[in-house]
Simulated scan of single mutants.
Amino acid sequence: CWANRILSLWRWWVTTSKKQESSRACPEEGQIKGNILEVNKEMIELLGAPNKKEVKKFNLNNVEKIKHIWNNDFLSSKNKDIFEGNLEYTTNWGKKVFLKYKIEIILSKKNGSEIIIAANDISREKEIEKNLKYFSFHDELTNLYNRRYFENEIKRLDTKRKLPISIIIADLNGLKIINDSYGHKKGDEILIQASQILKESLREEDILARYGGDEFAVLLPNTTKETAEKINKRIKEKCKKINNNPIPISIALGEATKEKPEQDIKEILKKADDKMYKDKLSEEFARTPRGEIKAR
């Protein structure tokens, strides 16, 4: 509550060029000097400043984002006591903060007026909000898009002008064996490595998502069946190049393409999944007594 917990306070002097005729008079445009009169210890800490003296040295009108607060609405208002808003700001001492502020004009007939700013640092709250938004559409392990985002994009891009639309379904072979033999930490490492292989094999405009535990999905707008097949071949080649370690990476792949508007995109997705499953069956895995995994 702002009333009973003001965490930080800036006060600086404001003068007016004409005599104030009523208690509702406000500063005119261009009359805010921006000199800091007083600052409390909470604000000093918030700014990352060494002491009060250093804070009072600089003029707030030299800070563009703060100066922007002095807009015409603020300067000409005769009905509002308090203005409020959010401000993302890097201080003179290099500290990045996200402030929620409230400004109040304190009128004085003798020496002009003061402006008081009460500011609360909400950087942590904003970071949490940012992370929640990010992970609502991203996979936490691989940082790829998640299934929710992928399904939203299918709906959005399923239009005539995006034809042909190709879909690739990819599945990391042997993940359960890797988890059982080497532990889930190693399984996670292989998943991340597989996601990087897929990402490096795709174009910038392609949409890659982690679709399930060991499954990935790729949406390729304006992409022919032949191009999708070339991408699959590129993925297979990349897997072979890094298979000089004890745990080879093998990815089963299936693709399908929507070429006509009347085709159901869900059927295209299913067709790609079916082709991936056939490719997966063709990969025979065996575990040796030493716990190694071989693909043939």
Rank of each mutant, 00 (worst) to 15 (best):
K102D: 00
I69Y: 04
F98V: 13
L208D: 10
V63G: 00
N146A: 00
P246K: 03
K185D: 14
D171C: 09
L163R: 02
E189R: 09
N111D: 09
G48M: 12
L220C: 15
F58K: 11
L7H: 10
L253T: 08
A295V: 15
I192Y: 07
N86H: 07
K100N: 12
S113G: 05
A209F: 04
I265T: 05
G254T: 08
N243K: 05
K109D: 04
W2S: 04
N152M: 02
A256V: 11
A217W: 04
A252S: 15
G112F: 02
M43S: 09
R161L: 03
L107G: 03
E255N: 11
L172A: 12
L75A: 05
P289T: 08
N92M: 06
A170I: 05
S166K: 01
I242R: 04
L198C: 13
G48R: 03
T288M: 14
K233Q: 14
S8Y: 02
G254R: 03
R147P: 01
A217V: 15
R234A: 11
I165E: 04
I106R: 00
Q31Y: 06
T15L: 05
L191P: 06
E45S: 13
M43I: 05
C239Q: 09
I190T: 08
E104G: 09
L163C: 01
L87F: 08
G174T: 07
E267F: 09
E229H: 12
S250I: 07
L75N: 07
H68T: 12
K41N: 12
S181K: 12
N222C: 12
S113A: 11
S136K: 02
K126R: 12
W2N: 04
I197H: 01
E153H: 00
V63Q: 07
G48F: 08
A194W: 07
K19I: 10
K78H: 08
V97F: 01
A286P: 09
W12T: 07
R203Q: 12
K130H: 01
R5A: 10
Y211T: 09
L99H: 00
N120L: 09
K65S: 15
E237Y: 06
I231F: 06
K80M: 07
E125H: 08
E215Y: 13
K275L: 15
E38F: 13
R234C: 11
K185G: 14
K186N: 03
N40F: 10
S123T: 15
S136N: 04
K236A: 13
I154V: 13
I242Y: 00
T142D: 00
D73M: 03
Q263W: 03
K130M: 10
I247M: 07
E127G: 01
Y182Q: 10
N62V: 03
K56Y: 06
D206L: 09
L202C: 11
N152E: 06
W10K: 03
I32H: 09
L87T: 08
L219M: 13
K162Y: 08
N62C: 08
N61V: 14
S250K: 06
P27I: 01
D188W: 06
E129N: 10
I207D: 04
C239E: 14
R124P: 00
E292Q: 13
N245S: 11
K266H: 10
Y101F: 15
N173W: 02
R296H: 13
I116F: 09
K271E: 15
I192R: 08
K110L: 05
I106N: 02
